[in-house]
Design a protein around this nucleic acid. Structure first.
Lengths: 225, 225
DNA sequence: TTCAATAGTGAGTAGTCACTCATTTAGCGC
DNA sequence: GCGCTAAATGAGTGACTACTCACTATTGAA
């Protein structure tokens, strides 16, 4: 199998990412064209000839900047991964979370949801590419899980455990609570973006988030007042 | 755009589906090989030459049974769609739901979750293909939403509304409750199959479902007894 | 046994793919 | 304008693509 592993693969790209502005005009236009085509037709269905044409560049120029077609994919996908995990992994995670921990859990959830929803709405196409290709490329899937997921999980679970001790949350296994928190967020995103665009708009994004947090905290079951 | 629409596309396949056993040996082996390859490397990355080799068949034979490569994809995907929506759309939906309606909502949710989870575990590869290709092929995505989603939505929302009146559920908008119900299910599946296989196994499937239903009904917030 | 229909074959076709490389162009200090 | 370097080019390459077609093998009813 000898999978390329994160080191040789994506993380390398993430590190070389510093210089978004250090790209040449042509290079940026190749990236822009690739994002468009990959999002519309998928990576495999987009040819380097098409990318070159869309970018207004000779096919050879592509390979001066990216040593293979797959390299373009990684260059497209890496920055999104960084943004996605952003607020969570930045140096001062602990500091941020010490601040967060003071707030009520419902408010933390609410802020998390509206923050991530914004991010997804404004990066729709690249995120689409990211998810599509995560199906096929082990490196991308693993990087996605490692960056967006595992990184978050420990931190959030610790917060949850603290909130359980503080009697703000019910004494459930923290990984189950974490799953509930994430499920609600994913459902929110999925319904808004894909499944149910029409019905979703019956309420504003803000209202939908409030409903979601309410249900997460209090459930849907009826209780006598 | 002139998209093929469901009539010309998938639904036609679903209708021609009756005769799973009327296939020749070779034809079945072509399907089996396609499922394997599509699931492993994706539709675009699997060549007809590979499929033929994997199926132990001449390449020409493929095109005797399926008029194009895309036809194979539809033939792979259509039966899953039928199974997925199965228990919901079968003739006697109303009858089933009249029976279901008597049960407590928590029990309905619990049965729904364990039923769909079983289905997904035992059809993992074809469902993977279905989701992958739903990104690219409008017909598949639309058929998926039309069959699995919209079909269910109305029925379930009516049930929810009845349960709200019966003071079994809180008076929330029914589409929001429906979203919560589905989000929890998707989260359950996603964590089990992809994100968190290890931690998930700390509890049995049954326990995980019970936790999920508990949180759906009662929330994660603490309340004085 | 005959005949027709269907199933199966695999070499062949035209086209596309990612990628290369000899050549041309552009930028710049002198 | 000269000389040098680096960027950009696009025709060319062999491998691979989905699909065709002239042909053979198998089946089953008359």
């Amino acid at each position: 199998m000898n999978k390329p592993s994160l080191e040789e693969g994506l993380l390398q790209f993430v590190e070389e990412l510093k210089d978004e502005s250090e790209m040449t005009e042509k290079q940026r236009s190749i990236l822009r064209a690739s994002i468009k085509l990959f999002a519309e037709k998928g990576f495999h269905a987009s040819s380097t000839a098409e990318i070159a044409k869309e970018a207004g560049v000779a096919e050879g120029t592509i390979f001066r900047h990216y040593k293979s077609k797959k390299d373009i994919l990684l260059a497209v996908v890496a920055p999104v991964l960084v943004k996605f995990a952003g607020p969570f992994i930045l140096k001062d995670v602990r500091e941020i979370f010490r601040e967060q921990a003071k707030k009520p859990f419902a408010q933390i959830a609410q802020e998390l949801y509206s923050n991530r929803l914004d991010l997804i709405v404004s990066n729709e196409r690249t995120i689409r590419i990211l998810l599509q290709e995560a199906f096929f490329h082990d490196e991308i899937r693993e990087a996605l899980i490692a960056t967006v997921f595992s990184e978050i999980k420990d931190t959030v679970q610790k917060l949850i455990e603290a909130k359980i001790i503080a009697k703000e949350l019910r004494p459930l296994p923290s990984e189950v609570v974490f799953r509930a928190l994430l499920s609600s967020m994913l459902g929110l995103i999925l319904f808004r973006q894909v499944l149910d665009k029409d019905d979703f708009q019956k309420h504003s994004d803000e209202e939908q988030i409030d409903f979601t947090v309410d249900i997460l905290m209090n459930g849907i079951g009826y209780r006598e007042p």
